[in-house]
Amino acid sequence: MQQLAIFGGTFDPIHWGHLLIAETALHQVSVKQIIWVPSLNPPHKQTASFEHRLEMLKQATKDNPAFTVSLIEANRPGTSYAINTLIDLCAVYPNTRWYWIVGLDAFQTLPRWYRGHELAQMCDWLIAPRLLGGETIAQSELICKQVEQHLANQSVIIRWQLLHIPLVGVSSSLIRQLIHVRQSIRYLVAEPVRLYIAAHNLYSK
C-alpha cells in the first residue's frame, strides 16, 4: 500500500513556508508523493484567479519529482468540500494510505467541517504548527489534543502528528501586503514565483 499526502489550499501565492511544510511531510512520514490541490473557489476569500495561482504552484514545485499538482478541484461545480476531494483522489489512487497536511488553525475547526467526523477517520493528519501566533510546540500539541478529545467524546478516532518544521514567519497575506506597499518579496517565495507575480502585476492593487 502506497502512502500519499494531500496539501490543499488557496496558495495565494505559494511561498517557502508551504514548500518547507511539504518537504518535511515527505520525509517525516515517508510518503511517496505530496499532491498539491489548489482550491477553485474558496469560501469567504477573495483570491487571485485560479489560473494564476495554479501556474505559480506549478512553477514553485516543478523541480521536485515527489510533488504533483492536482486539478481535481478545477471543474468541480458548487462548493468544494474536503471530503469530496479525498473521495475523488481515492478513485484516482486506489490502495493508498492517505495523509492530509493542514495548518493548526484549520485543524482546530475540523469538527465543524462538512462531514468532518467522517473525514477525520479517513486519513492521518499532519499538522503544521502555527508560525505567526507565537505559540510554542507544546501549545500547538495541546490544541491538537483538545481536538482529538472533542472528537473522541463523539466516538470519532483521529490519528495525527505535528510536523517538525523550521519556524518561518511567512504567510501569503504578508507577501500580498509587502507587494501592495512595494516592498521586496525576494527569498520569501521561489524565484520563478516572484518573477511571475511581477510579470502579471499581481497583488499590487
Rank of each mutant, 00 (worst) to 15 (best):
N75F: 12
N75Y: 06
N75G: 09
R76W: 04
R76G: 05
P77C: 00
G78D: 05
T79M: 05
T79D: 04
T79Q: 15
Y81F: 09
Y81G: 09
Y81I: 04
Y81N: 14
A82S: 15
I83S: 11
I83Y: 10
N84S: 11
T85H: 04
D88L: 11
L89V: 12
A91S: 04
P94E: 13
P94T: 11
P94N: 15
N95R: 13
N95G: 14
N95W: 06
R97V: 01
W100L: 12
W100K: 08
I101D: 00
V102S: 02
G103A: 06
G103Y: 14
L104W: 01
D105R: 09
F107G: 10
Q108Y: 10
Q108K: 15
T109N: 10
P111Y: 10
P111W: 02
P111G: 07
R112M: 10
W113S: 07
W113F: 10
W113A: 03
W113K: 07
Y114F: 08
Y114E: 07
R115P: 09
G116A: 04
H117M: 10
L119M: 06
A120I: 07
Q121D: 01
Q121V: 00
Q121A: 01
W125M: 06
W125E: 01
W125S: 05
L126F: 14
I127G: 06
I127C: 01
A128T: 02
A128D: 00
A128W: 00
P129C: 09
P129D: 11
P129F: 05
P129W: 01
R130Q: 14
L131P: 00
L131E: 08
L132V: 11
L132T: 13
G133C: 15
G133H: 05
T136E: 04
T136G: 01
T136M: 04
I137C: 05
I137D: 13
Q139T: 06
S140K: 05
E141Q: 09
E141W: 03
L142P: 00
I143S: 09
Q146Y: 02
